[in-house]
């Protein structure tokens, strides 16, 4: 039973990822796209945690932790570029 539930949850998270990709493609402004990318990182972490449970291996948590760190740094770097790169004031 648990294996089926894990697969169903993976399907739900994959659906969420499709919605994020849609927003990434149509997003009218650059911050929208950054936000979609950030959400994709978080959903990928969830998918990796579920995959680790599916395979019954704890190895994948290191990967999930790395994606969390890299995603945060990437989001901050992109936003900083938007903040500093264009001069309005």
């Amino acid at each position: 039973m648990l294996q089926n539930v894990i697969q169903l949850t993976m399907f739900i998270v994959a659906l969420a990822l499709v919605l994020n990709v849609w927003r990434l493609c149509i997003g009218p402004s650059l911050p929208d796209r950054i936000l979609a990318l950030d959400t994709m990182y978080i959903n990928t972490i969830a998918l990796l945690v579920l995959f680790g449970m599916h395979e019954q291996k704890t190895l994948y948590f290191e990967g999930a932790l790395l994606i969390a760190v890299m995603g945060f740094v990437g989001t901050v770097a992109l936003s900083k570029y938007l903040l500093r790169g264009d001069i309005i004031e």
Partner: peptide
């Protein structure tokens, strides 16, 4: 797991 999955989906739906 299901609760977490549904919340993740709702967040992306909001996005």
């Amino acid at each position: 797991l299901l609760l977490g999955g549904v919340f993740a989906l709702i967040g992306s739906l909001g996005l």
